[in-house]
Amino acid sequence: MTKTFMERAVDWGRRKSPWIIHFNAGACNGCDIEVVDALTPRFDLERLGMLQQGTPRHADVLVCTGAVTLQTRDRLKQIYNQMPEPKFVIAVGSCACSGGIFDGCYCINGGVDSVVPVDAYLPGCAARPEAIIDVVNKLLKKWEEKQKEE
């Protein structure tokens, strides 16, 4: 199926402007500091087109940190459902990937993928800001290649 010019333009726009929203599902705050760090002038995500948004309605990428607790489980689901398609989820930090050191705790549901589908995993305790930038970039690159194949 060949794409029309407008569809290709929209694909290009998606690749160049990923807007992220950050959600803390129960992290120790270590990974959150790193996510915030990635947004500071030192790393300057805006040069790659990334902007942090306050509302899930405007966001394309959900950057989720920490193991999902029983408290945040429903909220995470709700926020995921509030995001318009196409949307991506990135699990940042070992806790978000698998539950990490909190796994098996009485109040922990598991990693992020136990609640919502995850597109990219980024292990590390805590994940480095360079890695966070890289994972968003790689995710979109992969998505772009898949889009081209279609």
Partner: peptide
């Protein structure tokens, strides 16, 4: 900071149109 690339507002606009 370095700041956005020159086509950034256009990319944002097109992306939002397609969402």
């Amino acid at each position: 900071r370095t700041g956005p690339r020159w086509y950034q507002p256009l990319a944002d606009f097109l992306k939002l149109l397609g969402k």
